Structure formats: C-alpha cells, structure tokens
Computed example of a mutant assay.
Amino acid sequence: MILAKSTGGALADQETGPSGNPSRRLATVPAVFVPMPVWNPQAVGRPDVMFEVRERSRLVRAALERLPPEFRDTLVLKEYDGLSCEEIAEVLGVAVGTVKSRLFRAKLELKRHLAAFFASPSSLAD
C-alpha cells in the first residue's frame, strides 16, 4: 500500500486491484472546521458561539458524506488537502478535465444540500 501525497485529513491509498492494476480509494471525510465570522472578540469563548461553530462543522461534514464518492474524494483533495487539479488527476488516475468537472458538480451538490441550513431568513420567505 502506498500513501499518495496528502497535506491534510484525506489520504489516498493505492492498492493493486483484482486485475493487477492500481486501484485507489480515499479515507473518510476529514473532520471539518467551518470558521464562523465573529465580530465581537469577546464572543470567541462563548458557549453559544462554540455551539454554532460545531453545528456548522457537523452540517458540512454530513453534506460531504452524502456526496457520491468520486465527487467527495475530489473535493476533499482540493479543498482540505490543497492539491492542484493536476495532482488530484494523478492521485485518482483520471484526466484533469474530469477533476474539474467533478469539482464543479460536487460544489453544486454541496450547495444544494446546505442551502436550507445556510439560507438567510429573507431568502426563506421567497
């Protein structure tokens, strides 16, 4: 087993598949920390602020886990591990264009999953 380049939570494991060709799979979604703007420095240690940060992180993680594996893996490698599209293509064994397409579609799906949770009150009235 060879671990591909990773700078963060997701690791790509390379193993030999049944046909003798390398197959790749990614570890689970990394723990996500979603920063929340805090306009009042005294609010940083407040329990309600900490709860909201943890809840946002949980929602994003759940939405990531709902994505199809090929979208999730691509998005995690890009956004959490900081790999370039070329590096992701190499790790996953796909074309760079495929990586870009998966990133676009993954972000659309993620936005769709999270829209209700992060919508402003005025947009819910529409």
Rank of each mutant, 00 (worst) to 15 (best):
R61P: 01
R24H: 07
A31E: 13
Q14V: 13
M50Q: 09
L114W: 01
M1L: 15
S19H: 08
V32K: 01
G82S: 08
T28C: 14
A4W: 00
Q14W: 07
V38H: 10
T16V: 08
I2L: 12
R72Q: 12
R46Y: 04
L64N: 00
L11T: 04
V29C: 09
G82A: 10
G17H: 09
L83W: 02
G20V: 11
E79K: 14
L83V: 09
D48A: 10
V38M: 15
P37F: 07
E86C: 10
K78F: 02
F104H: 10
W39N: 14
Q42P: 01
K107E: 11
T98Q: 14
G97T: 07
T7W: 07
S84K: 12
N40G: 04
V60Y: 01
A31M: 11
P35V: 14
G97R: 08
P121T: 06
M50H: 07
K111E: 10
P22K: 11
A10W: 02
E90P: 00
A119P: 00
L59A: 13
S101V: 04
K5Y: 03
P47M: 12
L83A: 07
T7N: 15
P69E: 12
D13C: 06
E86A: 06
L26F: 07
R102T: 05
R56D: 14
P37R: 10
E70N: 09
A27K: 02
A4R: 08
R58F: 02
P47K: 11
R66V: 04
P47E: 13
N40T: 10
R66M: 09
D13I: 08
R56P: 04
S6M: 06
R61E: 12
Q42V: 08
A27G: 08
E55A: 06
I88A: 05
V44G: 04
P68L: 10
L83Q: 04
A62Q: 05
E86Q: 11
P41K: 05
V38G: 14
R105T: 03
A119W: 01
M36R: 08
R58K: 13
F104Y: 08
A43K: 05
F51C: 04
S120C: 03
Y80N: 07
P69Q: 06
G93L: 13
L75E: 03
Y80Q: 15
S122N: 12
L114N: 03
P30T: 05
A116I: 13
D81F: 05
W39H: 03
L77G: 00
N21V: 11
M50C: 08
T7G: 15
V76I: 13
A119K: 02
L110R: 01
T7Y: 06
P121I: 10
N40I: 14
L103I: 05
E87G: 04
V32H: 00
S101C: 10
A10S: 09
S6Y: 01
L64G: 00
S6G: 05
P18Y: 02
A115M: 14
V32L: 12
G20Q: 13
I2A: 06
T98M: 07
R61K: 12
E15K: 15
G20Y: 05
V94R: 04
L67W: 00
K111R: 11
A62R: 04
L114K: 02
A95P: 01
A31H: 05
R56N: 11
P35K: 15
F71I: 03
D48K: 09
A31D: 11
